[in-house]
Design a protein around this nucleic acid. Structure first.
Lengths: 193, 193
DNA sequence: CGATTTTTTGAATCATATCAACGTACGTGG
DNA sequence: CCACGTACGTTGATATGATTCAAAAAATCG
């Protein structure tokens, strides 16, 4: 069983082949085209999305109608509006496809049931939520303590695949700056390299 | 039983008087003086802290040694380094007393045990973690979409008690700006009011 | 290929930081 | 109870990082 998802589970928890078969039974596979939304602002997030292929972003929309990227995801990443998923109430994130995708949908009610039969799945997702929290805190910290250029360099270092594949406008938005600024930052970096 | 903590539990969950007695048995009461630290960077956060009286802040320290306030807490607030508390591994938050405090300490192992006997306690803290997550996301969103002045006004509106009692330097740090900037923002607000 | 999206560049402007100085308040030890 | 020191707040002058708006160049897509 060569499966990206199986390996992903076993990165942070321990899932047997048998257990994985059970999980597979509730997964829904979707092929989604660029520019399509998996989730709209105000929707209840009914699935956790695991990316098998392609790229996506989640984003919020402010009062002026500007979008702000909250998360970027490529192969082997999970993406969702976590707080909406956990509470099953309307959230304020939207999720859009950046690059034609193959995603696996893990439905909320099915997951709740699987927790009973596969205890280590609870561990896995508890850890996942926790990483999300830590990551958010780290982002707030760096947005308050370092320059946009440093933030960009850090992102490049930690997620080189993301920064090379995702269009600059989304990376800029993720970093909390404009596309123009990031373009200038790139020029500046190249000029001294 | 007139208790701030009892009422706090019943804001987000339902705890009976009997259950509350059980909880009280594991709580540790501490009186802590201004400037003292309840937690240092790199410590394992072994307690959730409930503030009965006084004021505290949690903060991170960046590479240049500057502090950045992550949370402010007064009476009726919980404070902790959540990710360190949950994993019981060293964290990177410190917690310092701003105003002489009375705090209740809820130890990690005791809480784990109470979850078995008081199921609604699990609900309560799950919701607490979730609010922390949502709040963090909202902060990141507003730090990327609105000006420092708007952020300050929002804080004043949502937490008037905090903004009136806590020294300006900590509020500024919480907002991600310098004390000088916040001072000017205040002046600007008063001038047009 | 044309159409759209994405990236780059320039000039002007703005929000916030920085550095330095001064004012105020407060609490503690003498 | 006063005086002193430390913590906190304000103000001014200047610097800087990032935004805005406009336009052109480059890349991508059907």
């Amino acid at each position: 069983m060569a499966s990206l998802l199986f390996d992903n589970f076993n990165k942070y928890s321990f899932i047997t082949a048998d257990e994985f078969v059970q999980i597979e039974q509730v997964l829904i596979k979707r092929f989604v085209k660029k520019k399509k939304n998996l989730l709209h602002e105000g929707d209840i997030c009914r699935y956790l999305y695991f990316v098998e292929k392609g790229a996506l972003r989640s984003y919020t929309i402010d009062k002026q109608g500007n979008e702000h990227v909250m998360q970027l995801a490529i192969e082997d990443y999970w993406i969702a509006d976590l707080s909406s998923f956990i509470t099953q109430t309307p959230g304020n994130l939207a999720i859009e496809v950046i690059e034609d995708c193959e995603v696996l949908l893990l439905p909320h009610p099915a997951l709740e049931q699987l927790y009973d039969t596969i205890p280590s799945l609870g561990t896995f997702f508890r850890k996942l939520y926790q990483r999300a929290y830590v990551h958010l805190q780290a982002r707030l910290h760096s947005s308050q303590s370092i320059s946009a250029e440093e933030r960009y360099l850090e992102l490049m270092k930690q997620h080189p695949k993301i920064s090379s594949r995702i269009p600059l406008i989304y990376i800029a938005s993720y970093l909390g700056i404009t596309a123009e600024s990031l373009s200038r930052i790139r020029k500046h970096i190249h000029s001294k390299a």
